[in-house]
């Protein structure tokens, strides 16, 4: 027998991340693309082993994700995925913990857990499959449904205002915030990889088409004819340009954003805002987050903001180390006999 066994690292492929389960989403559902892009991106993740990956979900169509990934999986409780994932991460901080969730699961019943996971900067990767509808319960409006939307529970149009998921994450102090599209597979893969690399809470909103109950909700951002004029691809240190020939740009006018044509005589490329992903101030990112609801402006996709902060589990570990350094290693015997103890003879 040889003294040494050569163990070569095998390069995994997308197939290695596919489980043996039949995928049961409606034909044409955007969830298939998200699953495929996750499976294609995961072999390239640096420093994250397959056996260290856990997918956690709540309830909804997107929450079937853990069944389809050949990793550890946890199908949890409606709205509670972020809390369950927090438990998983703190119990075993070396795991790479991913949450698959929808607009009902994360923003309606799970809104409280989501904002607190963001605030604590728990090292979780949250993928929000936003289709602006409840799919699993067959077509009721969701907290991201646009005002006036007609659904089974709003047959005369909804009267309440939708969440802007990006601004909610920003307001809750998430440290990595991005948006992407189910139909732009390269961009989706890039955002998944960026989220994986981030240490801290990474939030990725994916505009995902529900082919049955809300078909075409994001067509304008993905259709060949319309996407150039309606989708703004954010790139770090690059001017915010869009349009067929990148002739349109975003200019800051006071505290408002507006569209200018850089080919017009009064304007130049120097007037166009340059995107800074790493801006410490959330102000620009907030302006960008609000663009999605403004019909005069394109909708941004890409990384809105990434900042670097201690994660919750790092913070807890540091604190434990600090207390131990100050008070010494805990000693139960010593503690039991520390004060007000007496012996009975």
């Amino acid at each position: 027998m040889a003294d040494k066994v050569e163990a070569k690292e095998v390069k995994l492929t997308a197939k290695d991340f596919a489980s043996d389960q039949d995928v049961r989403w409606c034909p044409g559902c955007g969830d298939y693309s998200v699953l495929a892009q996750v499976q294609r991106s995961f072999p390239d993740l640096v420093g994250i082993k397959k056996e260290d990956i856990v997918w956690v979900s709540g309830i909804g169509c997107s929450s079937r994700f853990p069944y389809y990934m050949n990793t550890y999986g946890f199908h949890g409780i409606h709205g509670r995925a972020a809390a369950i994932a927090t438990g998983v991460k703190l119990a075993n901080p070396k795991l790479s913990v991913w949450v698959a969730t929808g607009d009902g699961d994360l923003l309606s019943i799970g809104g409280n857990h989501f904002i607190h996971a963001c605030r604590k900067n728990v090292d979780l990767k949250i993928l929000l499959f936003n289709n602006r509808i409840y799919g699993l319960t067959k077509g009721q409006y969701s907290p991201t449904s646009e005002q006036g939307k007609i659904t089974k529970t709003t047959p005369y149009g909804s009267v309440d205002y939708p969440f802007r998921a990006i601004s909610l994450a920003l307001g809750s102090r998430a440290t990595f915030i991005a948006r992407t599209l189910d139909r732009d597979v390269k961009h989706l893969q890039a955002m998944i990889k960026r989220a994986a690399e981030h240490k801290g809470l990474a939030f990725v909103e994916i505009y995902q088409n529900c082919v049955i109950y809300n078909d075409g909700a994001f067509d304008i951002y993905t259709n060949k004819e319309t996407k150039d004029d309606h989708t703004l691809y954010l790139q770090h240190a690059k001017p915010m340009l869009f349009g067929k020939n990148k002739e349109k740009g975003i200019k800051l006018d006071g505290t408002k954003l507006k569209v200018i044509n850089i080919n017009e005589s009064d304007n130049s490329i120097n007037d166009v805002l340059v995107h800074d992903e790493f801006d410490e101030s959330p102000l620009y990112a907030t302006l960008l987050a609000f663009m999605a609801e403004n019909s005069d402006l394109p909708t941004p996709v890409g990384v809105f903001r990434q900042v670097f902060r201690l994660t919750y589990d790092e913070g807890v570990e540091n604190q434990i180390a600090h207390i131990k350094a100050k008070k010494g290693e805990g000693d139960l015997e010593k503690f039991l006999f520390s004060a007000n103890t007496w012996e009975v003879n």
């Binding site: 709205g79 019943i109 699993l136 319960t137 067959k138 009721q140 089974k152 529970t153 047959p155």
Partner: peptide
């Protein structure tokens, strides 16, 4: 709040209540 197998109750109220008196609200949970 929608949940199978009772979502029709919420849907029925949403359809029928507005002009027959009464408030119907889909809660967040």
């Amino acid at each position: 709040y929608p949940i199978t197998p009772q979502s029709e109750i919420l849907e029925y109220f949403s359809r029928e209540m507005p002009n027959r008196g009464g408030i119907v609200l889909q809660a967040e949970s």
